[in-house]
């Protein structure tokens, strides 16, 4: 899995002054996923003496239904394994680093599932633009103008140290040229990819 490699490398070139991420918990969000009544019925038929277990939808706030007109703002949930970076935040636009290229998402975007590559996620809110560097992950854009971005690792761009990025880039380029096995080669390639994406993010 490339996610792992990516996040480790990314963590390596981030200064430790990272601000603590918010501790927001359950992300309240869209489409109503009712508890599966069929499951509970069949459970009670087969195992009458034990209460049916809970399922994830019990613990999730229902997501809003698709509005008839396009809302003026898009709701963003941006989650990492160790934090909920943004939860149901209403913003004007997000730009997502999809594997097919940067993708601007405005309210009323067609429902999309996009795989992400290392790159910049920018969140536009009025005149404020917040930029994060993501290692990889997925983004879902729902019909109800809710966008979910799931990343393995992410840091605000201003926390990245340019000198460490340069050093990492030269290191991995060297490793790539001297790699002998397929595995070494792949690892070095991932390192080069991430560092050049970081480099591009810093210069761009």
């Amino acid at each position: 899995m490339m996610f792992r490699q990516g996040s480790r490398l990314l963590a390596g070139s981030v200064r430790l002054s990272r601000r603590p991420f918010s501790t927001a918990t359950e992300v309240p969000a869209a489409t109503t996923t009712n508890a599966d009544s069929g499951f509970i019925e069949s459970w009670k038929k087969v195992i009458p003496n034990i209460d049916p277990p809970k399922t994830p939808s019990h613990f999730m706030n229902p997501r809003p239904a698709t509005p008839s007109s396009i809302p003026s703002k898009i709701t963003v949930n941006f989650v990492l394994p160790y934090a909920s970076e943004l939860s149901t935040k209403e913003v004007d636009m997000v730009i997502i680093p999809a594997t097919t290229g940067q993708m601007g998402v405005l309210p009323g975007h067609v429902p999309t599932i996009a795989e992400l590559k290392p790159g910049i996620l920018s969140v536009h809110e009025g005149n404020d633009v917040t930029k994060y560097f993501l290692s990889s992950g997925f983004a879902f854009i729902h019909a109800n103008s809710v966008a979910d971005v799931i990343a393995v690792e992410a840091v605000p761009v201003d926390h990245i140290d340019p000198s460490l990025v340069q050093k990492g880039l030269t290191d991995f380029t060297q490793k790539l040229s001297s790699a002998t096995t397929e595995l070494d080669k792949a690892e070095a390639q991932i390192g080069v990819d991430i560092h050049s994406a970081l480099n591009a993010a810093l210069s761009g």
């Binding site: 927001a24 599966d36 949930n77 799931i150």
Partner: peptide, 23 residues
């Protein structure tokens, strides 16, 4: 507990997209 609570955001987008299908 802090770790567990912080990780609760991560599965929700998947459930929102793919639903909860115990049955």
């Amino acid at each position: 507990q802090i770790k567990a609570e912080n990780s609760r955001g991560i599965w929700q987008p998947f459930t929102a997209l793919l639903g909860d299908n115990p049955s």
